[in-house]
Structure formats: C-alpha cells, structure tokens
Computed example of a mutant assay.
Amino acid sequence: MPSRPSVSQFFAIRAQWLVWLCALGGLTAPLSRALPTNHVPWLQWLVELAAHWQWVYATAGAAAMGLVAWMLRRRAAWWLAVPALVVAGSFVWQPATLPPAAEPDIANAKVLKVGTANLNLDTTDFTPLRQWLASADAPDVVFLQEFTELAQRALVDDAAIAARYPHRLAVPQPDPFGLAILSRHPLADARALQPRTDYDTLRLHATLLWQGQPVHLSALRPMPPLNSAYAQARDQALVDEALRLSQSGGLGVMAGDLNTTPWARGLWGAEQAQMRRAGPGVPTWPSAWGWLSVLPLDHVLASPGWQLVEAHTGPDLGSDHRPMVVRLVAQ
C-alpha cells in the first residue's frame, strides 16, 4: 500500500507548481510584445492582460522558490535556476529610463518637479489634494486625471493654491477622462484636443515656459484595455503623443494614468519615439489601505534632453491611485 505524502511533500509539490506558473506568467510579457496586433487581436489582448502582473509573478515566484529550496535543501534544486531566470528576466526587461543625474551637478542645476495624479471620479473630499498642492513638497507642474467639476471648484475656491498655481489648463468632465495641468510657470499654446473617435480620449497640449526655455507638455489618460480595440487605441495614443513631442524639438514631458505597465506594448512604442520613462516601474494602483499597490499605471515620460534626479510616489490623496512625482534636470 503506497504511503501518504508528508505535509512537507504536500507543500513542496504545490510550491513547485507555483514556481512554474509564475515563470509562465513572466513569459507573457515578451510574448505580448511579439504577437502581431493585426492577427487574432483578442489573443494578443488576453496575453497582454496577463503580462501586466509581473510584480505578482516576481513576488509569488520568489516566495515559492525560497520555499522549494528550503524544503529540498538535502536534494538538488538546480532546476530552480530556469524559472528564476525567466521571472527575473521578464521583470527587468522594460523600456529605457532616463539616465540619472550626476550628484555633483544637482546642487547647481535647475530642477523641474513634475507630478501626476489620478483623482478618481468618485472622490468628493479634496482636502488631501489641497494639502499636497499647498505643501513645500508640491510639484512645479501637476497633471491631473479624472478631473471633475467638483475638483475644479475645490481648487478654484482655495486662494493659496490659486496663487501657487496661477497658470492652468483645465477641462473637467463628468466621465473618467477629464484632465488638468496646473503650473507655477507660464503656459503658452495651451489647447484641448477632443476625442476624434469612440476609442479616443481627451488630450491636453501646452508649452511650459521654464527657465528661459520651452518645455512641450502632453497630458492624457487613454482608454483602459477593456477589449482589444481599446488597448490598440491606447497604444496608438501613446505613440502619437510621443512622436509629437519628439518632433517638436527641445524638451518634452508627457504624463498621466496611461493605463499600461512597462511590460506591455504601449510604453515600448513610446520608447521607439524617443520618449523615456522617468524612473522605474513603481506600483501606483490600487492604493489599498493607502500604501499597497501592485500595478505601475501612472507614468511620467520625458525626452532624452532630461536627466532624472529622483522618482517616488506621492501622498495618499484618497484615490485608488497614488501620485507619481519625479524631479528632472535638463542636460
């Protein structure tokens, strides 16, 4: 009569399965970028949805590998190197980021602090937002998404914030696609581009007059990838805006809740248009309990003329997203 497996064997077997499942999840990232969008688009879309969760695969995979290695400590566990390389390789294979600024140059450099925040359509209390914008840590220019009439009134009624950000381009909407740009520095050529198709969303363009030089801005929140058509429209919007900024010459910044992660196709298209991520893929959604996030959906992309001083998440604004804040210095 065969003997029953021990408790340790029970968990070891399931941990090994979890290791390989995480490796399979990791492979969805490069696979989603390799699959052609014009052939079986629904398959590419499904694979990409799985590719967004690389933080989960890396965390769960590392825990499972550690458990297996501990339980099999008396036997060879060399095979763990294969899934470990797959998970780690898929996780770190991301679009290029801005080069870090050299520390000796930062003190004398002119630094632009940029922030982006999705306010959440259902938010009614904007006290945390006002406190952040009135604080000493507030960015020089702020990109806001899911910007509503209620948010507009909350900021307009605050005299301190109105004085701090005298230059604005705001288009509040009752849907999740209202946008605003708040700036301490003058804005020129400010305009709102209304959606051209059912798959398109509002975009804001402006030129920031900063330190005697223009900085071309692009604010957007593309459609979330609810289906393959929305996902393709999102990726095309990112490429279009990246191309516009790169072709305008000089310095450029685009930011927002881009509804994509560094492992999917969209940000790779922006990289080909010479836009670089400002900082690593820091998780910003969901903002569970004000600190736990899984997916890096909120991004600041900048032209190659910038260097990165630092990047970090901002305070809890009562939204389901955490703000993303970066400090940039012109080369």
Rank of each mutant, 00 (worst) to 15 (best):
A311V: 05
G115D: 06
L43F: 12
L21I: 15
Q9V: 06
T148F: 04
H52K: 04
A62H: 07
S303L: 02
D235H: 00
V215A: 08
F147E: 01
A84R: 01
E310I: 02
P2I: 01
L204T: 04
P262A: 02
Y57V: 02
K110F: 00
A270K: 00
H205Q: 12
V326Y: 09
L182C: 12
A151C: 05
R75D: 14
D257F: 01
L27Y: 10
A23S: 13
M275F: 01
W210C: 14
Q173K: 14
V19H: 09
L31D: 08
W79A: 04
L204M: 05
V86E: 05
H52D: 05
L121R: 11
L308M: 09
H299M: 08
A330N: 12
L209F: 00
V19N: 11
P174H: 10
W291L: 11
Q211P: 01
R153Y: 09
A219Y: 11
L129M: 12
A302G: 13
P2S: 02
P128H: 11
W285H: 13
S32D: 07
G269P: 09
F177C: 02
W55N: 15
P30Y: 10
G89P: 12
P2V: 01
V294H: 14
R73V: 04
L297N: 05
S248V: 02
S3F: 08
L187Q: 14
F10S: 13
A101M: 13
L245R: 06
L35Q: 11
S183Y: 11
S90I: 12
A302E: 08
L18N: 01
L85H: 06
L258D: 03
S319L: 03
A96Q: 14
G269E: 13
H167V: 00
A311H: 06
S228R: 00
L238V: 03
S303V: 02
A23Q: 11
P5W: 10
A170E: 15
A102F: 07
A206K: 05
W17D: 10
L112P: 10
P95E: 09
W263T: 12
P224T: 04
S32T: 12
P315T: 07
F126E: 06
L35D: 12
A270H: 03
G269I: 04
Q9N: 05
V326T: 09
H216C: 05
A231I: 00
L46E: 07
E146R: 08
S287K: 09
A81I: 15
R168D: 02
L150G: 08
T123Y: 00
L133V: 10
P5T: 12
R184Q: 15
L98M: 09
P280C: 00
D189C: 02
W45K: 04
A273V: 00
S135L: 07
T37D: 15
L27S: 14
G252S: 11
L245H: 09
H299N: 10
L31H: 02
A242Y: 00
T124R: 15
L129G: 06
T197G: 07
Q94A: 07
D240P: 01
S248A: 15
G250D: 13
P224S: 09
R277W: 09
R244F: 02
S218L: 14
